[in-house]
Design a protein around this nucleic acid. Structure first.
Lengths: 187, 187
DNA sequence: GGGAGATCGTTGAGTTGTCAACGATCCGGC
DNA sequence: GCCGGATCGTTGACAACTCAACGATCTCCC
């Protein structure tokens, strides 16, 4: 899912949007107000993450997902984490995590160890190489996050963003099944 | 790129974050303030789009990317659009668009026609089937966008989001090459 | 304590995207 | 008019994810 912007056409008010989709439209579909925010959200995400991923890849041979996984391991007490938990944090399926850890293990950044308290479990353990790799990559990554995101917003905006998006994300915590615990609207 | 959240560890202030990553951390990396907004941004995107994609797929057998492509065609005057432009709007590589249009064409939603003014060019043309498909899907999709996004934010928040994220996205308009026209910070 | 059912991580198969390279066509300078 | 370089859409090869199914293990209730 590449995830661009746009959701449905509306009023013929082609306004800002410097180089992307038309903000107004013309098909046989109607759209709600506020949808512009949704589009900006999608567009911003697609553009920024692509940029960050490219830069990280070019400078350190690490994808954003790999970086994130290393970070999650590094910031967990003991620098090891159940595959399980890692999957949820990085927002990947369990099989996705298996393969991602495979890759990082092959590069020497992570090690797999058996979980002491659960014989089914595996833990990913950060190696010194992995930590060094993460440290180096963090510089590049944070620089990018600043350049493309943080530096363009003032403190109030960042706080507002955090509040709004945090509120929007929290009810969707798990996501295993398609939509169970969430009443469609008011029913 | 699965794109979860998080960027770097920081102060040991594990606060909100209902079911995901720790907001404070403990590795050998330092992090800037405001990074919480960045994390919320990533988390919200990952969770919402996954949900929307699942629902759209279940109800109409359409991925979010396919939906978006249909919408882009539908909202372009003449209901046809150059592959080129479509790629940019949906934020996909040109080969990605070739394949996506292949799929939609196979389903009868789109048709490929030669461009009249440029013999190299192809245009994707929306078929009646495609329009009907889009209309049906739009209901599901918009309902989801409301449920997971719009309805959780008031008007002021939406406006703020649009302004902030729009400003953040615009400088990254094209994105073909990795980072050419953007001074690293202040140099 | 024993068995049914849930959960763990991995695997095979399939999907959807990318990059590099291609032939075809367009365009600007000579 | 024509030729060199850009741009168009497609293709082959590959990368990274998903789902479904698996054996192993845990957990809870009888």
């Amino acid at each position: 899912m590449p995830t661009s912007a746009s959701s449905a056409p509306s009023s013929p008010t082609a306004a800002a949007a410097p180089a992307a989709a038309p903000r107004g439209a013309s098909a046989g579909v109607t759209e709600p107000p506020g949808i512009d925010a949704w589009r900006s959200f999608l567009t911003a995400h697609a553009r920024i993450t692509r940029r960050l991923d490219d830069e990280l890849q070019a400078a350190h041979g690490l994808s954003l997902a790999e970086y994130d996984a290393l970070l999650q391991v590094a910031t967990t007490p003991g620098r090891r984490i159940r595959m399980n938990v890692l999957a949820e944090r990085v927002i990947l399926s369990r099989s996705g995590i298996t393969r991602l850890v495979d890759r990082l293990e092959a590069q020497g950044c992570l090690e797999r160890i058996a979980c002491e308290t659960d014989a089914r479990g595996q833990e990913a353990l950060l190696t010194p190489i992995g930590l060094e790799r993460l440290r180096a990559a963090a510089r590049t990554h944070l620089e990018g996050v600043h350049r493309y995101f943080l530096d363009r917003l003032d403190e109030a905006e960042l706080a507002a963003l955090d509040a709004s998006l945090g509120r929007v994300a929290s009810p969707l915590a798990d996501g295993r099944t398609t939509h169970e615990g969430c009443p469609p609207a008011a029913s």
